[in-house]
Design a protein around this nucleic acid. Structure first.
Lengths: 221, 221
DNA sequence: TTTATTTTGTATCAAATGTTACATACCCAA
DNA sequence: TTGGGTATGTAACATTTGATACAAAATAAA
């Protein structure tokens, strides 16, 4: 087990032996769950740090009518909801359900605090994990603030192109990109097509070449 | 000064004297800036924890064409970008500019780490601050995932009503609410008007009464 | 290679929202 | 009380996007 979780972001830089020593100095437990088992429900208080040792879970966001809005899969050896163990309203924002037979490492909050005192590395890793989450979300919101699909595309392409000149390769399928943008797939395809028709970009498969960067930037005005 | 920052989220529960002792055991500096002075630029590395002792600053998000997208004001005695001191890409996501004559407390990252070791309370406060930020952003994204304005309104109203029965008071003006929803003000007003016309709610100023909760929930389907 | 599956391009139509403009209501301060 | 500024209600029209459907292309599997 310690070998598995040594790859977890919160244990990065620690040897399996060190992790074992660290964990054995506090309380924790192992929990095995079957497929489709509910691990936590929305609004449950989040009192433990949960790491996925093996398997995967998903977070399901529901609205008031019970409809599933968004699903996020989390795989071993990542932590579940590290950013919800602390904070004013430390409750799960989603229902957490196992996708498959899954092994969980459950560490109570005060054990986590003890581990912070004992391991500088663990503390830094934990801070990094939450911070990364906040940064990711922040970036995502910034992105969603672009009104039209073309604006989002322009911003997205310019971001990728900054490093690699005028030729980029989309790292996502159109379907995934559409989901990332919060729009439908045909709408995204349409927007791409129009950018191409206007001679702003040239797209062949996932390869995109910026033909007229000036016009691309102007889309953001 | 220590009295001022004692009200900061990261120093909550500590007396001014304790804070003084804590800070004097590490390195830090005070920085006074005039109005409209640039404190940090987007993509600058974030190497210090910055607290606003007195005054206020704003974070400005710019797109590639240089247009200001969003502004967030931060007032004393809150920290600036606490969630960007750690993490993989610890760079400011925004330009930070002072709104007025402002006094800043600048604490280098390694001093912050030392303070974590010396004060359990400070560490917990910091974790809470980052976590709150992540939770806030998470909630915000969840919210933005509702497609139509009516859906957003329904979700928003139901959230407020949960605690207080069927009568709620909007804590924001329509303008602010529209901004929060990421829509224009007239569109929000129209949506509110239609909910009223359909006898789902009754709105008078900021007072809203849910007339037909069932229909309100059905909007989410 | 052939077949199945996924991805992409495109079209049509309806629905939602933005834009702009203006009138009315409200609130605070002189 | 009376302005002046802000907040709100509403209208007409243009734009954008969603929903749905289907065909072509690309990719993976047999």
């Amino acid at each position: 087990m310690y070998h598995h979780i040594a790859n977890s972001p919160v244990f990065k830089g620690l040897t399996p032996d060190t992790i074992e020593t660290l964990l054995k100095s506090v309380q924790f437990r192992i929990k095995n769950v079957n497929e489709q088992q509910v691990i936590a429900q929305r609004e449950d208080e989040c009192t433990n740090l949960i790491l996925i040792v093996q398997g995967s879970v998903r977070g399901e966001m529901l609205d008031y009518s019970g409809k599933i809005l968004k699903v996020e899969d989390i795989y071993a050896p990542r932590p579940i909801a590290a950013a919800f163990l602390f904070g004013q309203n430390n409750r799960y924002p989603v229902d957490v359900v196992s996708n498959e037979d899954t092994t969980l490492l459950v560490i109570p909050k005060d054990s986590v605090l003890k581990m912070f005192q004992q391991s500088d590395v663990f503390l830094k890793n934990y801070l990094n994990a939450i911070s990364n989450r906040a940064q990711f979300l922040s970036q995502r919101i910034w992105f969603l603030s672009f009104k039209t699909i073309k604006e989002k595309l322009a911003q997205y392409i310019l971001n990728l192109a900054n490093a690699n000149g005028n030729k980029i390769t989309l790292p996502l399928t159109q379907k995934e990109l559409a989901e990332y943008f919060g729009v439908t797939r045909p709408s995204l395809a349409r927007a791409l097509g129009e950018l191409e028709k206007d001679q702003i970009i040239e797209a062949k498969g996932k390869e995109i070449i910026i033909i007229n960067r000036k016009l691309l930037i102007q889309l953001l005005n």
